[in-house]
């Protein structure tokens, strides 16, 4: 049985940057315990860890020359327009310092 404590849930909400009420946290605590309990059956499988390059799902970088740039401002307006808060050609965020 995998035990998930209240502190674990608090840490997880902090790491994943999700604000939650105490009721929501209680609920997710139970859910996580039951799901992690289920996936723990993986421990039964005797599997050697494959070398990194043989792992399925491991992404490889596909390199290319830095060429054919698009013309300046082709996408600027549309992209800036999808941001909730912008000014001119800039996306606006609160100051961090």
């Amino acid at each position: 049985m995998t035990k998930i404590t209240k502190e674990d849930v608090n840490k997880l909400t902090e790491l994943s940057r999700i604000e939650m009420t105490d009721t929501e946290k209680d609920e997710v605590q139970k859910d996580l315990e039951s799901i992690l309990g289920y996936v723990s059956e993986l421990r039964e499988v005797v599997a050697e860890e494959p070398p990194v390059e043989d792992r399925i799902g491991m992404l490889k970088n596909v390199m290319r020359e830095d060429e054919d740039p698009h013309t300046e401002r082709t996408y600027t307006e549309e992209v800036v327009a999808s941001a909730p808060n912008s000014q001119g050609d800039y996306i606006k965020v609160k100051k961090i310092l």
Partner: peptide
């Protein structure tokens, strides 16, 4: 934190937290 708290539904939060764990 507020945007993600309000914007994501229950299942999405569950999976994000599970993945983070």
């Amino acid at each position: 934190e507020k945007t993600r708290g309000v914007g994501f539904g229950k299942e999405v939060r569950r999976r994000i937290m599970l993945g983070t764990y």
